[in-house]
């Protein structure tokens, strides 16, 4: 029963990640892409944990933890860079 539960939930998470990916590809503004990236790494983390519990080996969950930490670092780097680009985009429109 637990295996069925875990397997089904993994498929549900994959089903959720497809529209998020569409939003990431389509997203008009950069903020939408960042939002989609944030959700995608959350969903991937959930998938990793579910798969780790299903396999039953503790090493699998370290992947999830490592991914969470480094995903957050990468996300910070992108967001910080976007801060300057966004400000000069909007200032560019008004002052230039």
């Amino acid at each position: 029963m637990t295996n069925l539960l875990l397997e089904g939930m993994q498929w549900v998470l994959v089903a959720f990640s497809v529209p998020t990916l569409v939003r990431l590809l389509l997203g008009p503004t950069a903020a939408d892409r960042l939002v989609a990236l944030n959700i995608l790494s959350g969903l991937a983390l959930g998938f990793l944990v579910l798969r780790g519990v299903q396999e039953g080996r503790a090493l699998y969950l370290d992947v999830a933890l490592v991914y969470d930490i480094f995903g957050f670092l990468g996300f910070l780097a992108i967001a910080r860079f976007l801060k300057d680009r966004m400000t000069d985009e909007s200032q560019g429109g008004e002052e230039e």
Binding site: L21, R33, A44, I78
Partner: peptide
């Protein structure tokens, strides 16, 4: 920048 965001998603999916 959209390329970089897509690239980080690529590495996410390949890790999965």
């Amino acid at each position: 920048l959209h390329g970089v965001i897509a690239l980080s998603a690529v590495s996410l999916v390949s890790a999965l």
